[in-house]
Amino acid sequence: MSRARAWLTAALAALSLAAGTARAAEVRVLSARVVAPSELRLRFSAPLPRADAENFRLTHAQAPDIPIPVSRVRLADGNRVVLTFEQRLMPAEHYRLELADPPLAHDVRPAAWALLLSVMIAAAFINNFVFTRYLGLCIFFGVSKKRDTAIGMGIVFTLVMIFTAMVSWSLDTFVLRPLQLGFFQILVFIGVVASVVQFLDTMLRKTHPVLHRKWGIYLMLITTNCIILAVPLLNAQASNGPLDSLALAIGSGAGFALALFLMSCARERLEYARVPQPFQGLPIAFALAGLFALAFMGFSGLDFFR
């Protein structure tokens, strides 16, 4: 009886010890967030054994050999630590955090969704293809006379853009770059655009003839448009990853659709305006686009992370 009891106590002690070491070894960084101007907020899975400044080493991803000096360590509660640094930290940049005790390393970077959202917002508003990069103007002025057409075009456009951007990205990453055939870029990308448009056109005609009758004409207009080609080119130029490329395509498409919609609304009213004769038609449309561009300049300070 007493022997069995001794065994039991021993087993329990071993179990609790095992659990204890497991917990000590299992201190993990649950979240790490940079808060401007110079704080790093950390949450661990268990209390830290050491919370002095020497225990933490933070470096910028581009300068891993130069630690950023820690000026203050604050324990919020057992598992939360707030580090204050002597330099400004940028929430959008990548850092690496290393701990001496327990030995831990963690990449501090903005969440993927936040980055994607910021790429999308930047492409749609800050660098709107029409109003600040001046791409796709031929179609923009041609199709923005009626609101219905503008909406249809905007939707078809965004879809084709996402499709072509992803196909071009795959070709560029897996074929052109490894084979060092970068000089075929333009040829390949325009080929992708033309094939995707042709493919969608055939698909649509076979499966949804009604839709095709309504939207087929926009598909055909897309081939000779520079925006659709600009997205793969910009992705290749910046060596973007798949998610960044997707975000840029969605953002650019949405930005173009937005520009078309806004412009078509304004141009429908322009019909009733009295315009001096030399300005009638395209010149006044250009001036109108200029006003929109001026308004869009207001977005350019927008930073998701500031």
Binding site: G216, I217, M220, L221, T223, T224
Partner: peptide, 8 residues
């Protein structure tokens, strides 16, 4: 677009 008129 005279180039892209869809013809049978």
């Amino acid at each position: 677009m005279s180039l892209n008129v869809i013809q049978p």
